[in-house]
């Protein structure tokens, strides 16, 4: 009896871990039915997503792939909130992640809205994985940024990744290590790693301005919230 109860408890604990996260993908088409991206592209992105997030035992399943015919949504301006809100209202609240594939976005390759991700044909699997990282609660990390004089210098050390596990190579410059992280703020083809613990780097933290009393984003060197065990969630949300 005790054993059976334990088994039920174990299954109950593991189920949320093992359940696939449903992906609802929509491809915008022009009036002639010509799609913004091929269906293979979407499948390729999902398989990349699964590859990256297998590190944290997350699995995504494409449960819907539908076409939307509306040529006004082929080209999206990330600053035109009325436009992308209308696009993302197509299937909000599915309980999974909604991906909207468009021909192009004016100033980036993919971006997060409160109701789903907008992805252009210029995006690759890593761009989508990076945005999903945000939906899972992780933030961007940098080695440097023109917006601040702060820089990450020096080598990696245990102190710079206190809650991360394994036996990392401490001989490499810490900035090089950051380039391998999924949440690295610059695009590259080697950013795949999701760490368990937070990592020291350059990030934006919320501070209270003593004079105005307002909270503002400021650049700082600290243990940035990229660690999945510390700040990640397996129930990604756009909010």
């Amino acid at each position: 009896m005790k054993r059976a109860l334990l088994t039920v408890l174990e299954i109950g604990l593991l189920l949320p871990v093992c359940a696939s996260i449903p992906i609802h993908a929509f491809i915008v088409c022009d009036a002639d039915g010509s799609p913004a991206v091929a269906t293979e592209t979407v499948r390729d992105h999902i398989s990349n997503l699964n590859l990256v997030f297998s590190q944290v035992v997350m699995d995504f399943e494409l449960v819907r792939l539908a076409m939307i015919t509306n040529e006004n949504w082929l080209s999206i301006s990330s600053s035109n909130s009325a436009q992308h809100q209308a696009l993302c209202a197509t299937a909000h609240g599915t309980g999974g992640i909604e991906l909207y594939y468009v021909e192009e976005i004016d100033d980036c390759v993919a971006f997060k809205t409160p109701s789903g991700l907008v992805v252009s044909r210029d995006a690759n699997g890593l761009s989508v994985a990076h945005e999903v990282g945000h939906l899972c609660g992780l933030t961007d990390i940098y080695d440097d940024h023109e917006g601040t004089t702060l820089r990450v210098t020096g080598r990696s050390s245990r102190n710079r990744m206190p809650n991360d596990y394994g036996r990392p190579d401490f001989s490499i410059p810490h900035a090089k290590r950051l380039e391998r992280l999924l949440m690295y703020g610059y695009q590259n083809s080697s950013k795949l790693a999701i760490t368990g613990g937070d990592i020291y780097g350059l990030g934006r933290s919320v501070r209270r301005n003593e004079e105005s009393g307002n909270y503002e984003l400021v650049w700082d060197l600290y243990n940035v919230e990229v660690g999945f065990w510390e700040h990640g969630t397996r129930t990604p949300s756009c909010d």
Binding site: C108, S127, D140, E146, G147, Y186
Partner: peptide, 22 residues
């Protein structure tokens, strides 16, 4: 080279901030 690096920033808002600061 600075513009090249800034143009690789993932988020558009981020790029704007970096370029203006530079």
């Amino acid at each position: 080279s600075a513009v090249e690096r800034m143009s690789r920033l993932e988020h558009a808002q981020d790029r704007l901030e970096a370029m203006e600061a530079y």
